[in-house]
């Protein structure tokens, strides 16, 4: 067996060290990463993947901890990928989501991995999607992804998760603006956490009001739930809703949903592949560097330069 095969084998048998190493290999985009993902891919598709997003301070990590506990009580195994931002200046990151879940870390039915965004946009890391596949292939029943939570448009999560939960809390300031600004469309379920605060009902009503603006006929109307993560209040109800959503996906939506997801993933993969192989060729020729110089000197604009390069690259490919 090659090393990659061995690693893949370890993942499939649910061996913790292998799962951890496999995620590192993917994160680092090591040479064997592609082979690894392709060898585990046939074994994925069994887990239900849930995304949690929403502004910082909403209590996502605490809520996730409670949800994981509830799933464990129901006999399910769980994987968690928690994403934190990478500093664009230093390239370093401080990964602190795990702290809310540390008591779960010694439960053999739970695997938690912290992940730096490494400047990938949209609230997750480039490797998040494949890390989820690793946990799926390793036999986790549920895989939870926690996004960066910087309050910006963290819409990438829909490419990864089947059920997206958007978490809010009363008193976070202009969080309702944030919902309007983009994450409204991605939510399958809304949660107003810290619902023991006095203005929680207002937050619920605000969200409902925005939802009513969207009067498209859909099979699934995103519910708005209340939770108190600190005490676990409302968590069973949330899980019930997630389960309902999963069943609906299974019945019919699933096909559509998974086709869309597959399409998006394929396009993404093509982009990545095309860019890296074209770039590689261009850099070898030296023309790339030359054009960069010309752009700097304002002799040519970037779009025209790209056209020029691509024409040549495609011709080369045909030849």
């Amino acid at each position: 067996m090659t090393k990659v095969e061995e690693l893949a084998q370890g993942v499939l048998s649910g061996e913790i060290r292998s799962i951890a190493r496999a995620i590192t290999v993917i994160e680092n985009n090591a040479p064997e990463a592609k082979k690894l993902v392709s060898s585990i891919y046939p074994h994925t598709g069994k887990a239900h993947i849930i995304g949690f997003t929403g502004a910082g301070g909403a209590g996502k990590s605490t809520l996730i901890e409670k949800i994981v506990r509830e799933y464990r009580r129901n006999g399910k195994t769980v994987g968690v990928v928690a994403v934190d931002p990478t500093s664009p200046f230093t390239g370093g990151a401080f990964l602190g989501d795990r702290i809310r879940m540390q008591e779960l870390s010694t439960d053999p039915g739970v695997f938690i991995r912290s992940m730096a965004s490494r400047n990938y946009p949209g609230g997750i890391a480039r490797a998040t999607k494949d890390a989820v596949k690793v946990l799926d292939a390793a036999g986790k029943d549920i895989v939870i992804v926690e996004t960066v939570g910087a309050g910006q448009s963290e819409v990438e999560i829909i490419k990864v998760a089947q059920t997206v939960v958007v978490v809010h809390a009363p008193g976070l300031g202009d969080e309702i603006q944030a919902i309007k600004a983009g994450i409204m469309e991605i939510a399958d379920i809304f949660v107003v956490n810290k619902a023991d605060r006095e203005n929680a009902n207002k937050t619920v009503m605000d969200i409902q009001a925005i939802l009513q603006l969207n009067n498209k006929e859909t099979a699934w109307k995103p519910p708005v739930l209340k939770t108190v993560a600190l005490t676990g209040e409302g968590v069973p109800q949330l899980i019930e809703k997630i389960e309902e959503h999963r069943l609906l996906l299974e019945k019919g939506l699933k096909h559509k949903g998974s086709r869309e997801k597959a399409e998006a993933e394929l396009i993404e993969a093509i982009k990545e592949k095309v860019v890296s192989s074209v770039l590689e060729g261009l850099r070898k020729e030296g023309e790339f560097e030359q054009l960069v110089g010309e752009i700097v000197e304002r002799e040519i604009d970037p779009a025209s330069a790209a056209e020029k390069l691509l024409k040549k690259a495609l011709k080369d490919a045909e030849a």
Binding site: T62, F94, R100, L230
Partner: peptide, 10 residues
């Protein structure tokens, strides 16, 4: 009362 979990800010 439940148990407090620290909020880490560095």
């Amino acid at each position: 009362y439940g148990e407090y979990k620290e909020l880490i800010v560095i």
